[in-house]
């Protein structure tokens, strides 16, 4: 029985989301199997130190696929999983069964969905906890509604295909490092598997600065118009931050979608989120609950954003923000 983990790279290092995937994957190993460990699968140069620290007993380094080609990556995983995945129904053993774990990223979810389609196995996206429930079954908890709701489920399949939520499982190194024995394998893939592949180019529109900003000044319907954002932008600049917006703002066309915070926008993790004229719908919270501190400015003291913030100012943002900007400018 093997627990495979598809490891993504971020530059030369293991991507943070994959460290979380490795952490959850280790939990699927039976305690009894001494010396067993996760088998990491890497398309690229493996960061062996990190992989060992996170408990990888084996590291499969795949060659023959140039760059990101989701179906080809899935085909390689299907090959490693082998016939184990095909035994349906009565053929299943009662003992621990193999698993393929990946990060709940665009790549991880996409590759595992392909693997699910190739093998006919169920795939559970964005898991936050997994444990054996006997008879080879798994009890798992996964995110719905971008984490606003949790689903408890039982998976009874010849092999488990799971991705791990990027914001729920904390990455933790293994208590004992893995041997990280390298196995070079070449991909057995067809031309059809390689048909869809990523051509990469730098930059482009992305939520990067929003996702990593230390201060985000948020604006919602209460801002009232595209022009109404002037004081928010001025404040963001004074605080060394960026402006983020609610979905109402992007639907109205006041600001582009790349600035949207929330379930279908960007998840932010600033030290301070200053939410102005935003009611605090749960889909918005799905994107800003990672903020360390929240200050809300709203005319309605009972808006969810006001009651769930750390600090609240009851008032018209068009009055408060210019006064705040002036006060900050007067300080220097």
């Amino acid at each position: 029985m093997t627990v495979w983990c598809l490891v993504e790279l971020d530059g030369d290092a293991v991507a943070d989301a994959s460290l979380r995937a490795l952490t959850l994957a280790r939990g699927l190993l039976p305690d009894t199997a001494a010396g067993s460990g996760v088998a990491a699968v890497v398309f690229g140069a493996p960061p062996l130190g990190d992989l060992a620290a996170y408990g990888a007993a084996d590291v499969y380094v795949v060659s023959g696929v140039d760059g990101y080609a989701p179906r080809a990556w899935a085909r390689v995983l299907a090959g490693l999983l082998g016939p184990a995945a095909e035994s349906t129904g009565a053929g299943r053993t009662g003992g621990p069964r193999p698993a393929v774990v990946a990060a709940g990223t665009e790549h991880g979810n996409e590759v595992l969905a392909h693997l699910g389609a190739i093998t006919g196995l169920p795939m559970a996206a964005n898991c936050v906890a997994v444990s054996a429930s006997g008879g080879g079954k798994l009890d798992l908890v996964r995110q719905r509604w971008a984490g606003l709701l949790l689903e408890e489920a039982v998976l009874d399949a010849p092999a488990a295909l799971l991705t791990v939520a990027t914001d729920a499982v904390a990455p933790a190194p293994a208590t004992a490092a893995g041997a990280a024995v390298v196995h070079e394998i070449s991909a057995a893939v067809s031309d059809a598997d390689l048909l869809v592949r990523a051509v990469e180019s730098p930059g482009g529109p992305s939520g990067v600065s929003l996702a990593t900003a230390r201060v985000v000044v948020g604006g919602g319907r209460g801002v009232g118009s595209a022009e109404g954002f002037a004081p928010l932008e001025e404040l963001a600049e004074l605080l060394g931050g960026v402006v983020g917006v609610s979905r109402v703002v992007t639907s109205e066309g006041w600001r582009p979608h790349s600035m949207q915070v929330g379930q279908t926008g960007t998840k932010i993790t600033p030290d301070l989120y200053l939410a102005c004229g935003i009611s605090g719908a749960i889909q918005h919270f799905a994107g800003c609950s990672g903020a360390r501190h929240i200050i809300a400015i709203n005319t309605d003291a009972s808006a969810p954003m006001m009651t769930r913030a750390d600090y609240a100012v009851v008032g018209d943002l068009h009055e408060v923000l210019p006064a705040l900007v002036k006060a900050l400018r007067d300080r220097v």
Binding site: T88, L121, A124, L148, L149, E151, E152, A153, T307, V314
Partner: peptide
Amino acid sequence: AGDFRMTRLRVPDAPRKQATVLGQGS
């Protein structure tokens, strides 16, 4: 080739904060 069955849904506990009101308007 396998069975995936939801058993229960659960709303995660949100940290209950009590916002400090800093005041009204400017």
